[in-house]
Amino acid sequence: HMTFVALYDYVASGETDLSFKKGERLQIVNNTEGDWALAHSLTTGRTGYIPSNYVAPSD
């Protein structure tokens, strides 16, 4: 899985969403939902949907 870094803070709007903080590292599990991606946080160990425009690929 590619690793991504959060560009902004995001507060989950539902139970299936994943909250994260700017700078948090995430792995995209499934990116077939258009503007949303299923992601796993390497920081918190949690998995949920995130807005895909809130993250960018990290080196």
Rank of each mutant, 00 (worst) to 15 (best):
M2T: 11
M2V: 12
T3N: 08
T3L: 13
T3G: 07
F4L: 08
F4T: 07
F4R: 06
V5W: 05
V5N: 03
A6K: 00
A6C: 09
L7N: 05
L7C: 11
Y8G: 05
Y8H: 08
D9K: 01
Y10D: 00
Y10A: 01
Y10N: 02
V11F: 10
V11S: 09
A12N: 04
S13P: 09
G14R: 14
E15K: 11
E15I: 10
E15Q: 10
E15W: 08
E15F: 08
E15P: 14
T16D: 14
D17G: 14
D17K: 10
D17I: 08
L18A: 06
L18M: 14
L18C: 04
L18R: 02
L18V: 07
S19N: 05
S19V: 06
F20L: 06
F20P: 00
F20H: 02
F20S: 00
K21V: 09
K21E: 07
K21D: 05
K22T: 06
K22V: 07
G23N: 05
E24M: 01
E24N: 01
E24A: 01
E24G: 02
R25N: 06
R25M: 14
R25E: 09
R25Y: 14
R25V: 15
R25H: 11
L26D: 00
L26T: 00
L26Q: 00
L26F: 15
L26R: 00
L26S: 00
Q27C: 15
Q27G: 04
I28D: 00
V29C: 15
V29Q: 08
V29K: 08
N31Q: 13
N31E: 11
N31F: 15
T32L: 15
T32H: 11
T32F: 14
T32Q: 10
E33S: 13
E33Q: 11
E33H: 12
G34R: 07
G34D: 07
G34A: 07
D35I: 10
W36M: 08
W36S: 04
A37S: 11
A37Y: 15
A37M: 15
A37L: 15
A37N: 06
L38N: 02
L38I: 07
L38P: 01
L38Y: 12
L38V: 05
L38R: 04
A39V: 13
A39K: 00
H40L: 14
S41A: 02
S41K: 01
S41N: 12
S41F: 02
S41E: 01
S41C: 02
S41G: 01
L42F: 06
L42N: 04
L42K: 05
T43Q: 08
T43N: 08
T43F: 05
T43G: 05
T44R: 02
R46C: 10
R46Q: 10
R46L: 12
R46V: 06
R46D: 06
R46W: 06
T47E: 07
G48N: 01
G48S: 03
G48I: 01
G48R: 01
Y49A: 03
I50D: 00
I50N: 00
P51N: 05
P51D: 04
P51M: 03
N53G: 13
N53W: 14
N53H: 12
Y54S: 10
Y54F: 12
Y54K: 06
Y54R: 06
Y54M: 13
Y54V: 07
V55D: 04
V55E: 04
V55K: 04
V55A: 07
A56D: 06
A56Y: 11
A56F: 09
P57T: 08
P57H: 09
P57M: 11
P57D: 07
S58I: 15
S58N: 10
D59M: 13
D59A: 12
